[in-house]
């Protein structure tokens, strides 16, 4: 029996359910499932321009596994482009990051719910933006 897959932490799910090609003559030839963790890998590496090693740490997997997820994501997107397939976002082996942060100034730990846009310490007297994501 293969070893169980470790859940990949992701910060937020993609904001779309899929992408569809348009302007192609022949009808769409099927779809490709893009996993949440693959979306996250593309986002971290190519949108946030993070180094693979840092991105891997954030997702809770090894650097090599991150590279594999990223590679598979790129191949899927390329395949969808070339073969005019739809891209559908599916859950995969993802786990939502609990988003616990630590303030390096006053050592308090806290979460940042989606309703708060600023990434800084919740104490007004501190308000430090020197915060760091922790695995809790």
């Amino acid at each position: 029996m293969p070893r169980q897959r470790r859940l990949r932490k992701i910060v937020a799910p993609p904001k779309f359910q899929g992408y569809k090609p348009y302007g192609n003559n022949d009808y769409s030839t099927g779809s490709i499932d893009l996993l949440y963790e693959e979306y996250e890998a593309i986002k971290l590496a190519d949108y946030d321009m993070m180094k693979h090693i840092d991105a891997a740490k954030l997702m809770g997997v090894s650097r090599a596994t991150f590279a594999r997820i990223y590679e598979s994501a790129r191949q899927k997107i390329a395949k969808a482009f070339v073969e005019t397939k739809e891209i559908i976002a599916v859950y995969g082996n993802a786990e939502f990051d609990k988003n616990w942060y630590v303030c390096n100034n006053c050592n308090s730990r806290f979460t940042i719910p989606s309703t708060i846009n600023e990434q800084k310490c919740p104490f007004v007297s501190c308000s430090s933006d020197n915060i760091e994501l922790i695995n809790k």
Binding site: S108, T111, P122, F123, S125
Partner: peptide
């Protein structure tokens, strides 16, 4: 709390008074 978007803050250390925290908040 996560579901209702309430921010959770954890403070560690002993002997913290309510006063101190209120001062830090205002």
């Amino acid at each position: 709390l996560e579901k209702f978007d309430i921010q959770m803050v954890i403070i560690q250390g002993d002997g913290v008074k309510i006063n101190d925290l209120i001062k830090k908040l205002s």
